[in-house]
């Protein structure tokens, strides 16, 4: 399993266009689909976590790397998805895939609802606004007893088996990557980046910046909500502090930064790195976060374009990528 994932950096290094990328994605899905047949629970756990992170990071990268929307509010949508998924599973008995689709819709709708407020803010102020949104939702969940209050809610039936969950999340990661490929390997990318660079000048070129930003925001939020939904299904029990916590938003941000902002492979490499780091530091619980912090500082400082950017600079890989 780990071999298969590590080998997929070829995904973007072939730059002959979106078609190759799509083919590689399909290939990766085909191969990874069979991982549960021979890999143990430990690896499936790691694979699951990597895929969830990948979905989140892809969406975030689309917003920030392309449309210039740096969000610290990913957890709003993760939490929303988590609550929606467990609610649907518990109350309606909806099958998981359907529940996830509804999560996506809910995430998109929430994004659309808050966008009139958030899009008034540009640049860093947008970032601060998204952070506040997550906090608002968390406080809401803590206080409204219908949602279980501070103790949260528990999945009444047994969660699906790990191999099943793994395949779901794999498909989700595939879809997320595919969507992003479609957005970044086509004309859409030019439009997105124009909005990122200078909204007013873009408008003067006939672009409707509001709609473009809204599109990216809705898409990324739908992805995050699905990731939250499947994460909740796996956990079986959720509470507001965890699901709406700032930690999620920060994790996503660090993954993309560690991988390389705006780079095609950044999210994947970042997700792998964060999962691997978590494993490596599991033995030092008392200083875990401090060590992670130091590593983050060093990486930001010495790998400005993230790990992928660093790799591209190495002559051999660089040539292939260019």
């Amino acid at each position: 399993m780990s071999d298969a994932i590590v080998s997929s950096p070829r995904v973007g290094s072939a730059s002959t266009g979106g078609l190759v990328e799509v083919a590689v994605l399909v290939g990766a899905l085909g191969v990874l689909w069979f991982v549960p047949d021979f890999a143990g629970d430990y690896w499936l756990q790691l694979g699951f976590r990597t895929c969830v992170y990948l979905v989140l990071a892809q969406g975030w990268n689309l917003m920030a790397g392309s449309a210039g929307l740096v969000s610290l509010g990913t957890s709003s949508f993760i939490g929303l998805g988590a609550y929606a998924a467990l609610g649907l599973l518990n109350r309606v008995g909806a099958p998981l895939p359907l529940a996830l689709l509804i999560c996506a819709t809910a995430g998109g709708v929430l994004a659309a609802l808050v966008s009139p407020a958030l899009f008034r803010l540009r640049g860093l102020y947008f970032t601060v606004g998204t952070l506040a949104l997550a906090e608002l939702l968390r406080l809401l969940m803590v206080n409204v007893s219908a949602f279980g209050g501070a103790t949260g809610i528990i999945l009444q039936e047994d969660p699906p088996a790990l191999p099943v969950l793994f395949r779901y999340v794999l498909v989700l990661a595939f879809l997320a990557s595919l969507t992003i490929t479609l957005c970044t390997r086509t004309r859409v990318s030019v439009i997105l980046r124009a909005v990122r660079d200078d909204e007013d000048a873009a408008a003067q070129m006939g672009i409707r910046p509001y709609r473009v930003k809204l599109g990216a925001f809705v898409l990324a939020s739908a992805l995050a909500a699905m990731a939250g939904g499947i994460q909740a299904a796996k956990l079986g029990a959720i509470e507001p502090y965890g699901m709406f916590g700032l930690q999620w938003s920060i994790d996503v941000l660090s993954m993309v930064i560690i991988g390389g902002v705006g780079l095609r492979l950044g999210p994947l490499v970042g997700a792998l790195f964060v999962v691997a780091l978590g494993e490596a530091l599991a033995d030092y619980p008392e200083a875990h976060t401090a060590i992670a912090g130091v590593i983050l500082i060093v990486l930001i400082r010495f790998a400005p374009q993230g790990i992928v950017g660093l790799a591209v600079k190495l002559p051999l890989i660089g040539r292939v990528q260019a």
């Binding site: 860093l124 970032t127 920060i250 941000l253 930064i257 200083a287 976060t289 912090g293 500082i297």
Partner: peptide, 17 residues
Amino acid sequence: AEAQMMTMFAVSIILEN
């Protein structure tokens, strides 16, 4: 902005620890 922001986040978790 992100690089400095993330660095300060790292400082924050180091301090907390």
